[in-house]
């Protein structure tokens, strides 16, 4: 083959490969980008747009640009003549449940995950199967399980009564304390409805997530660090306080924040276990959009506020982390 021939062959090769790359390296990403952008972003934009819409009595709603819905959320419709903080209070309950439940989950999941990472690879895999199965279990089923466990005529209260635990509590005088906390009626303990049951179930809901989120950081932690501390005379509690906790502070804060945001949207656990007066924004969104109220714009407004408060918390957490890092 002469040089000229081979060169022309090379030239053909390169143009052919250019043509091929034009086809799939240019068109596919942009087509995919269009699909993903539309499907991932447009729903959020719609929620925002509709939150400024107006409800028509007896009909659906119309596009508009009014802040009435936001005004209603923060101070009520009749402002300034009359002020109501009902919706803010619901948001407050959303935060309250989510904060306590996520902290509870992270605090109990941390020692568990630490122990998990010290096991053999095989044992870890077995535990992970169990945890992932529990993680993927629908909120519906989890609530169902806890509902049976906590409901007044079966489960734990019945167990308390039949084993005489209730009587014992009464004899010891602790029953009154439970009544003060709203965890008992005159005859027996009761967990439905209570904040205790709500937070317990929510915490259970995200506990496997806490393990899965903490797992990478903890399993990458160099065990020789703790060993080094131990050779320098640190006790177990000192090792945990001075070596382990500082090195997982970042994932710990990150996990708490993610679980918190996730729990802001909890619906079933709240409707089943919480007193109607202590329902959350998520329940209100549901009621407005698909439930009895049929006020889509106001539901959208509440969804936007939930989303914005979630983002504010994430940003604040991020800033706090960076501030702590810089210190």
């Amino acid at each position: 083959m002469t040089v000229a021939e081979s060169l022309s062959e090379v030239a053909e090769e390169t143009t052919a490969s250019h043509r091929a790359s034009f086809r799939w390296q240019t068109v596919l990403p942009w087509a995919l980008a269009a699909v993903i952008i539309v499907l991932c972003l447009v729903p959020f934009f719609l929620v925002i747009a509709i939150s400024f819409g107006r409800k028509i009595e007896g009909a659906a709603w119309v596009w508009d640009f009014t802040f009435e819905n936001y005004q209603r959320f923060f101070v009520g419709t009749l402002w300034p003549d009359e002020v109501t903080f009902l919706y803010l209070q619901q948001l407050g309950y959303s935060f309250w449940y989510a904060v306590i439940a996520s902290l509870l989950a992270v605090m109990t999941a941390l020692p568990f995950t630490l122990l998990l990472t010290r096991l053999s690879r095989k044992a870890q895999a077995a535990w992970l199967v169990f945890i992932l199965s529990s993680l993927s279990l629908s909120e519906v089923f989890i609530v169902m399980g806890w509902d049976i466990l906590l409901s007044n005529n079966s489960g734990l209260p019945a167990l308390f009564k039949s084993t005489g635990l209730t009587q014992w509590l009464k004899d010891m005088g602790w029953f009154q304390v439970l009544r003060d906390w709203g965890l008992a009626n005159p005859r027996n303990v009761k967990f439905k409805t209570s904040e205790f049951a709500t937070i317990l179930t929510m915490s259970y809901l995200v506990w496997p997530y806490a393990v899965i989120l903490l797992y990478p950081a903890l399993s990458r932690m160099d065990p020789s660090l703790s060993e080094a501390a131990r050779t320098m005379g640190a006790s177990t509690s000192q090792v945990i306080r001075t070596v382990i906790l500082p090195s997982v502070r970042l994932p710990l804060v990150g996990t708490s924040l993610l679980l918190f945001v996730f729990l802001l949207g909890t619906y079933v656990a709240v409707t089943v276990f919480a007193d109607p007066a202590k329902h959350t924004t998520a329940v209100a969104i549901y009621t407005n959009i698909r439930g009895a109220n049929l006020n889509a714009p106001f539901g959208a407004t509440q969804a936007v506020i939930l989303l914005v408060s979630a983002s504010i918390c994430l940003t604040l957490g991020h800033m706090l982390n960076r501030w702590a890092e810089a210190r």
């Binding site: 447009v42 959020f44 929620v47 949207g265 959208a300 969804a303 979630a310």
Partner: peptide, 12 residues
């Protein structure tokens, strides 16, 4: 994001 928000958006 909280799934209820994305659910509402997808509904619209």
């Amino acid at each position: 994001v909280p799934p209820i928000v994305f659910g509402v958006g997808l509904g619209f």
